[in-house]
Amino acid sequence: MGYPNDILTSRAVVKPGKYMILPPEGLVNNVVPGFENVSMSILSSPKTGAKFVDYVGTFHKDGKNKQGFGGQDDVETFIYVLGGKLKAWADEEEFTLEQGGYLYCPPSVTMYLENLRDGDSRFFLYKQKYTPLEGHTPWVYAGNSNENEEVIYDDMENVHIQDLLPTDIAFDMNFHILTFDPAASHPFVETHYQQHGAYLLSGEGMYNLDNEWIPVKKDDYIFMGTYCLQAAYAVGREKLSYVYSKDCNRDASL
C-alpha cells in the first residue's frame, strides 16, 4: 500500500459490546490455518461482544481450504459469495457457488472450499456455536440470493427482505438480505435481544447505532450488539442492501 497521502484518519467506530463499523480500507489480513492463498480479515468475534465470528476475504488464484472449516460438534458455519466462483463440499455433496451463492453447514459437518477462477473470488464467512433443540436437527443447505423471492418488508413497498435459510425451528439463526430503495428506511428504531453482523452489498445510508447516526456505504461491515438501538435510511441514487445474520428460534438463557 505504501506511504500515506494524507493525515491518517478512519471512518471506523468500535464500541465493544454495543456496535462496530469497519470500513474496508482499515482492515488487515489475518492468517487463519487451513486457508491457502487467501487474504481474509476477522471482523466480529467474542472479543467485540459478538457470540459469533465473521470474516471477509478473497480467494486468489488456486486459493482453497482443503483442511476444512467448521466440523466441530457444536459449531455451525455459513459462507456467502460476494463475487467470483467457488467450489464447496459438505457432507459428501458438492456445490458451485457464484455471486450471491451461499452454503450453510450444521454442527459436525465440515465445509471445504476452492476457488474456481483464475482471478479472485470474494466471500463473507460466519461461524457460531449452535444452540440445540431437542428433537430437531438442521441440515446442509445451499442456494443463491439472485434466485430467491424478495418479500415486502413490514408492509413497506420500498423495502424488501430475503430469507436465505429455511425458517424451520431446527435452525437457531438465519441470514437475510434487506434492501432499501433510495430514501426508504426502517419503520421504527429497533431494540432487541438478537445480534447482527452485516456486510453492505450496495449503496449508501445513514445508520442509527445506539442513537448515533453514522454514514455507511458499500463494503462496510456493521456489528450490532444485543439491545443496540438500530435503524437505517438509504441515501444517494442506489439501493442500500446488506446481508446479515440474526439469531432466532430460541429462548434467552439464564
Results as ranks from 00 to 15, higher is better:
residue 1 M to G: 15
residue 2 G to P: 04
residue 4 P to R: 03
residue 11 R to T: 01
residue 12 A to H: 07
residue 12 A to I: 00
residue 15 K to P: 01
residue 22 L to P: 06
residue 23 P to I: 05
residue 26 G to K: 12
residue 31 V to Q: 15
residue 35 F to G: 00
residue 36 E to Q: 11
residue 38 V to F: 06
residue 38 V to Y: 10
residue 41 S to D: 06
residue 44 S to T: 15
residue 46 P to A: 12
residue 47 K to P: 00
residue 51 K to W: 11
residue 53 V to W: 09
residue 56 V to W: 05
residue 56 V to R: 05
residue 58 T to E: 11
residue 63 G to L: 04
residue 64 K to E: 13
residue 68 G to C: 03
residue 69 F to C: 04
residue 79 I to H: 09
residue 87 K to T: 04
residue 91 D to S: 13
residue 92 E to H: 13
residue 103 L to F: 09
residue 107 P to V: 03
residue 110 T to G: 05
residue 111 M to A: 04
residue 113 L to P: 03
residue 121 S to C: 02
residue 122 R to E: 14
residue 125 L to M: 10
residue 135 G to W: 05
residue 135 G to I: 05
residue 146 N to P: 00
residue 146 N to D: 12
residue 146 N to T: 10
residue 148 N to T: 13
residue 153 Y to R: 06
residue 154 D to E: 14
residue 158 N to S: 08
residue 159 V to A: 06
residue 164 L to K: 08
residue 166 P to W: 05
residue 170 A to S: 15
residue 173 M to H: 11
residue 174 N to R: 00
residue 175 F to C: 00
residue 179 T to E: 15
residue 184 A to E: 04
residue 184 A to K: 05
residue 190 E to N: 05
residue 191 T to S: 12
residue 192 H to C: 08
residue 197 G to T: 02
residue 199 Y to N: 01
residue 201 L to F: 10
residue 204 E to Y: 05
residue 206 M to N: 14
residue 207 Y to G: 12
residue 209 L to I: 01
residue 209 L to T: 01
residue 214 I to Q: 03
residue 215 P to H: 11
residue 217 K to N: 07
residue 221 Y to M: 01
residue 222 I to W: 01
residue 224 M to K: 14
residue 226 T to N: 06
residue 226 T to C: 09
residue 228 C to G: 02
residue 237 R to H: 10
residue 240 L to P: 02
residue 244 Y to L: 07
residue 247 D to N: 12
residue 248 C to Q: 11
residue 251 D to G: 02
residue 253 S to V: 12
residue 254 L to D: 09
